[in-house]
Write a protein that binds this DNA or RNA. Structure first.
Length: 465
RNA sequence: GGCGGUAUAGCCAAGUGGUAAGGCACGGGUCUGCAAAACCCUUAUCACCGGUUCGAGUCCGGUUACCGCCUCCA
């Protein structure tokens, strides 16, 4: 069974078939870098990083490109407010983006192109559209002739005439038609700008992705992804631009993630109800945030609040604890034992189940529940009188491997410092003397230091609280 | 007005025709010097109405509520 993914164009799950055997080209719309990202902005990088990881896990070589919009109206406004230059603001928030998203376990893409580094390319793209009569210059701006593109609306399933009735489209005397959208914007006094055949100006928003996706991934790409709110008009416009230019399909699969809500309302910078990743990470484990995001199917909305994040953390702890329990027990394990074959089969079965869930439109919610099942099996195994290193390894390796597909790391326990070591030894001595008052006092003391002790049949073990 | 999404136990969340996964929290129990961890047990007929079917949370029709896109937006 191949990987199935839900394609916004067809509104169906489709078997995935890349253009080139074993290779995947993937473009994910990146952020406009005028501020720190909020957790809504963090969903696409997390979700599509996971998609990428799974594709790689399944043997594909993934070319993952994600852009930065480092010049636009909001950025100009932000720079003005801060009394800084646009490039400086962009640079700072690109760094912040990598820091946040890196903490969340997202791998770097193969390329992260920026608009300002591709101005020439964008100008050439626009010139070609003008040559083909799909675009026209008007008062220093350049617009795309939307109605000329057959099939406009095929992604968002909007009919071009209904869009007009929507009527909230800005009318502008410089446009031939109110549906036309801007490819090149003439600069206002004092704005950052570049020279072009149409005078000083800068690219419109949509054109950058068409130009950069083509540069890095070719005329037709396998997967184009982004937030649901980008489907219209952004992605629709990208299709119009790219397909008008090349005459080829722009992307074969369109993936869109759902929103994150606060109190059941969409989180957005313009609504002002956003929570910055930067702020959450001051007090929360980034892995927990990632785990939380993946606990819901990527196309469904997620409601965010502190309690829900903490509940997710408790869930992740269950898996982590199982992993640590296994590691601890390994030292006390000897040779093969009686039912090992059965246990190994169970592990293999869970691995298969995990892959099956991920193959089915990246059902991370179910994949996580497989991780819980695997943890539960592991805990049951640990109740056996004898354990074998081989089975323990099968459990730990598989748990680590599958969690890794989700970008969740199973960390190895670090060493304790001498002071703590000494306390543990002291407590053991007290326990032997049945001096439980002292033993408990030391245990409390360690708890203050965030070290939780557990007495097991295989000896004392500790973990961070 | 057009397009789309959601409604499942206290909370979160899977599940697209066969008699409701999983997690968190709660309660009871086992284990433990006491804990912790773990294990066991307990908890829902799936917004509402009607239909199709031997059988529906799962398909069809309708109703209600909430949310989103159609404007910068992940």
């Amino acid at each position: 069974m191949s990987i199935q993914m839900y394609n916004t164009v067809t509104r169906k799950k489709e078997p995935f078939k890349p253009l080139e055997e074993g290779k995947v080209s993937m473009y994910v719309c990146g952020p406009t870098v005028y501020n720190y990202i909020h957790i809504g902005n963090a969903r696409p990088p997390i979700v599509f990083d996971t998609v990428r990881r799974h594709l790689e896990y399944r043997g594909y070589d993934v070319n993952y490109v994600s852009n930065f919009t480092d010049v636009d109206d909001k950025l100009i406004r932000a720079a003005n407010e801060l009394g800084e230059e646009v490039p400086a603001v962009a640079e700072r928030f690109i760094d912040a983006y990598f820091e946040d998203v890196g903490a969340l376990g997202c791998a770097r893409g193969t390329a992260h192109p920026r608009v300002t580094e591709n101005i020439d390319l964008i100008i050439e793209f626009i010139e070609s559209l003008i040559e083909k009569d799909f675009a026209y210059e008007s008062g220093g701006d350049v617009y795309y002739r939307t109605r000329k593109f057959n099939g406009y609306g095929k992604l968002s399933h909007q009919s071009i005439d209904e869009l007009r009735i929507g009527a909230r489209i800005e009318s502008d005397e410089r446009k031939e038609d109110e549906l036309d959208f801007v490819l090149w914007k003439a600069a206002k006094e004092g704005e950052i700008s570049w020279e072009s055949p149409w005078g000083e100006g800068r690219p419109g928003w949509h054109i950058e992705c068409s130009a950069m996706a083509r540069k890095y991934l070719g005329d037709t790409i396998d997967i184009h992804a982004g937030g649901q709110d980008l489907a219209f008009p952004h992605h629709e416009n990208e299709i119009a631009q790219s397909e008008a230019l090349t005459g080829k399909p722009f992307a074969n699969y369109w993936l869109h993630n759902g929103y994150i809500n606060i109190d059941n309302e969409k989180m957005s910078k313009s609504l002002g109800n956003f929570v910055l990743v930067h702020d959450i990470l001051k007090e929360a484990d980034p892995q927990v945030l990632r785990f939380f995001m993946l606990s819901v199917h990527y196309r469904h909305p997620i409601n965010y609040n502190r309690e829900l994040l903490e509940a997710a953390g408790a869930g992740l702890d269950r898996i982590r604890t199982a992993y640590e329990n296994l590691k601890h027990r390994k030292e006390a394990s000897s040779g093969l034992t009686e039912n090992d074959a059965e246990w190994l089969e169970k592990v293999a079965a869970q691995k298969e189940a995990f892959i099956k869930e991920m193959d089915d439109d990246f059902n991370t919610a179910n994949a996580i529940s497989v991780l819980f099942d695997l943890s539960g099996e592991a805990n049951l195994y640990l109740r056996e009188k004898n354990t074998s290193p081989e089975v323990i390894d099968a459990f730990t390796d598989t748990l680590k491997e599958l969690a890794g597909v989700l970008g969740i790391e199973m960390k190895e326990q670090e060493m304790l410092d001498e002071e703590i070591d000494e306390l543990i030894v002291k407590r053991e001595a007290a326990r032997k003397d049945r001096d439980f008052a002292t033993a408990d006092a030391i245990r409390d003391q360690l708890k203050e230091m965030n070290i939780i002790l557990e007495d097991t049949k295989q000896g004392i073990r500790w973990r961070r609280g």
